[in-house]
Structure formats: C-alpha cells, structure tokens
C-alpha cells in the first residue's frame, strides 16, 4: 500500500483560524504511524478563498480527502479510516 500523505495547510487563513495548533501533528504522526504516513506543511491549499469558506478553516488534506475545521483528533480519525484501522 502507498504511503498516506498528510498535508497540513499553514497558509495564513488556516494558521490564524486554528491551524497553528495542528503543528503538534508533526510529533504525533511519526510516533503513531512510523513510515506509513508522511506529513508535510503546505502553503495555502486554495480552499479558504472560495466564498466564505475561510469559516471552515483550518484545512488538512489526507491523500485526496479534505478535512475541514480540522483538529488533531479529526485528522487522526481520517488517517485511521484510510488505513482501515
């Protein structure tokens, strides 16, 4: 199975609306999943500028799946779901 790629948006909108605290994923993910999951920070994913969509920031992408209003728990849940745990 391919690695799961997690992209945490650290664009300004996401960072301001709560994404700053998602940086803890950088520590949690390697510990929890080893090399099954790859995590990277990403500049604006382009999701926040559509209409009032900033109100659902911060965004995280787990492969192609978009997690809106992202929290650490939500992102981990989505990873688990895709890994089939």
């Amino acid at each position: 199975m391919d690695k799961i790629s997690v992209k945490v948006c650290v664009g300004t909108t996401c960072f301001v609306m709560g994404g700053a605290s998602l940086q803890e994923l950088n520590d949690i993910i390697p510990k929890k999943y080893g090399d099954k999951v790859e995590i990277a920070a990403s500049n604006c994913l382009g999701l926040c500028s559509i209409n009032w969509e900033y109100s659902k920031a911060p965004y995280v992408k787990v492969n192609e799946e978009v997690v809106a209003n992202a929290t650490t728990e939500k992102v981990l849940e989505e990873i688990d779901r895709q890994l089939g745990i």
Partner: peptide
C-alpha cells in the same frame, strides 16, 4: 494578534506569498 490575523483573512493576504 488575533485582530491582525483576522485582517489578513478578511483581505485574503497570504504572508508566505
């Protein structure tokens, strides 16, 4: 800082760009 952040969001300013 929250207010400055809100100003960036409202004006769609991306600092990294």
């Amino acid at each position: 800082y929250e207010e400055l952040g809100a100003l960036f969001v409202a004006k769609k300013i991306q600092i990294m760009d």
